[in-house]
Design a protein around this nucleic acid. Structure first.
Lengths: 211, 211, 211, 211
DNA sequence: GATGAATGAGTTTTCATTCAT
DNA sequence: GATGAATGAAAACTCATTCAT
């Protein structure tokens, strides 16, 4: 068994979970999903975008649509964590961490606009009982639960007021997703400003009410 | 009562005397969308649910999938407004109106669980460039813009702090949608409690910061 | 048994083969066929054109699509004969009769443009083995065979050269149909001039070659 | 022989190396159209005739019904030109060319009976405003306009009498089409004899009238 | 006579997936 | 690894016809 994130090399010289082709297909999938939406995304369109001559290649590299989509989510989660985690950790107090979470998440919208849209597309279009959702849940939870944990710690430390951490995280998540969708349809939107507004909102919503 | 013989079909596909079948099909569509998700909703499933022997019947009553979906949204918007508007108007100040908006919206989740899920399913699965989205936008805006307008008035009246009303509405909308999705997958959730938590969050986020 | 063209009155006061509704539907069918083509003609479109609220009415008045189409042909044939026969008979010699046939046929294109188009649409879109074709054949033959008979008489009288009368009639028919189709797509066409050209062509093709 | 690996699909759906399947489907389409008529031709019937297990295969090879039909026309036009052009060019004078045009065209009826029927079926069942008609028009015009041009040259050379070349071509086309339809329904017809009769007719109709 | 609802077979097209080469 | 052909199910939609009222 091997540690997550450190795929072992195989005899072929390729890694287990990755190959140039796989990465190329995942990238193409992200672009297509972001552009036409999850519902209208098909292997044919992804193959075209990737410069592949047939969809057979996709089926060869991925066990199925679910597998490919999972990889899309994994990739975006990986990039997101890479960007967000150090920024969150750099913050000194929990209030700062919350702001860092929201603002760095929104910042990703400008850095990887397609990636975030793609993931939002996928996640909102998946029903709860979908077997994929389980797979996604694990991937998304790493960041989300850390965040929720931070909140509880902040409450314990007396830095945040008492509230249902889970609902709060849900609200933050929803608000951000709302902005992602909005950004997709309104190109001129000042995303950073919106990010600051959102951070303000949840800063006020979490901090200890002055007596 | 209207003039006899004149409930002729209009371009929208709606008759004045909204036939029983149409209503039945819309209801079936809501149930199916809520159950299997918009992506997997098909005329066949709706016809089965409605006890119809063929999909042809649906095409007979609705000009197309877009027409049916529009009707679904109209129906839910109608029910939502019916429930929410009086509750919002009953509130005396803007702070109360905001809480009434959020809590009555969440309350709908318990009264019409399928309806709200269905609409969320439809709206999240529509891309911005989709021609349908335009139709929906008009329907949804009635409630949304009223709400946004209230916010600005509250700011002008000095009851709310200064913030970007549009981002705030977006955040509230997103947070509620998040809860709708959550409720669908977690049947045991204490929805009313979540509603109160959400109301608390946005109450704190909007009110004038004590000096 | 009764003579063709003299439908007996029934107790209802309506004629056997005709009623105001039937005539109205036939007229609507002609217009629709001429406008959208036989292939795209449907009961729904005909009902709309006729101001009927459902296609059921058409099925009530006509035994089926075949029956309606047959009636369309009958109606046009009746009008055609009414216009052409006296003009053909007025001509003194066979050469004149031929010219009268062609030119009066073409003239119909200007008098009843939709009618002729409709019939051409129907006849060209019917396969030979189609049961309808038999019905049509009888209707169309009245004019056609008279014409062919005239040719043989003209040959016997030494007025026309020797040729295969059947092929000649076929050629004339085809040439006229060609013009009907052309007229439908080229509104500016000088139809009468084309008719005279066609008449010239077949005048030269039939007359005794000068030694 | 072309560069290996480069017979990529083009927008027209044609590959350089016109795959065997494509040709097979086109052939099946021709047979079906000739047998049951264009109106009753469906992908299902073509697939059955071609020994394909599903209609999906046809959609895989052709962008749509229009694409397949276009290919049918192209194929027949190609075969027609292949047969007719050398025969027309072999004739020494314009009178001979006209006869060669008509007779070689009719001869095709015996060589490729289904092909000509199929094309006639398609062309007569297309309305003038149909987008396909444009595509066909270009294909058919190559032969037609050459023919019309010949006529004008013959008139200029004093070999043909003065007439409207366009009407003449239309008449010839119509007469031939008439014969094609006739041949389909009357298997015993002496086609070659009819062809000679037609050629006689238009020979007389075009030649300089003796003073 | 007339209506509108209902039916079921039919249409083309798209999809994810499999397979031989 | 890579290709392109093949598959079969599913999609939305249309049609002529029937039937109760």
């Amino acid at each position: 068994m091997q540690a997550k994130g450190s795929p072992s090399k195989q005899s072929s010289g390729r890694t287990f979970t990755e190959s140039a082709r796989r990465a190329q297909i995942v990238q193409a999938a992200i672009e297509v999903i972001a552009e036409v939406g999850y519902a209208k995304t098909s292997f044919v369109k992804i193959a075209e975008r990737a410069g592949l001559s047939s969809t057979g290649m996709i089926s060869y590299h991925f066990k199925g649509k679910a597998d490919l989509v999972q990889e899309v989510i994994n990739e975006v989660m990986r990039l997101s964590a890479e960007y967000m985690v150090p920024r969150i950790e750099a913050a000194e107090d929990y209030r700062g961490k919350l702001r860092a979470y929201i603002e760095s998440n929104i910042a990703l919208l400008e850095i990887y606009p397609e990636h975030l849209q793609a993931v939002t597309e996928v996640l909102t279009n998946l029903k709860g009982d979908d077997p994929q959702r389980i797979g996604f849940a694990e991937a998304t939870r790493s960041v989300m639960e850390t965040h929720e944990q931070h909140m509880r710690e902040a409450q314990a430390a007396g830095e945040f007021r008492e509230f249902d951490a889970h609902v709060m995280v849900m609200a933050i998540r929803g608000a951000i997703d709302s902005l992602v969708v909005r950004a997709a349809t309104h190109p001129g939107l000042d995303i950073a400003a919106c990010g600051r507004e959102l951070a303000d909102i949840f800063d006020l919503a979490t901090r200890k009410t002055p007596s």
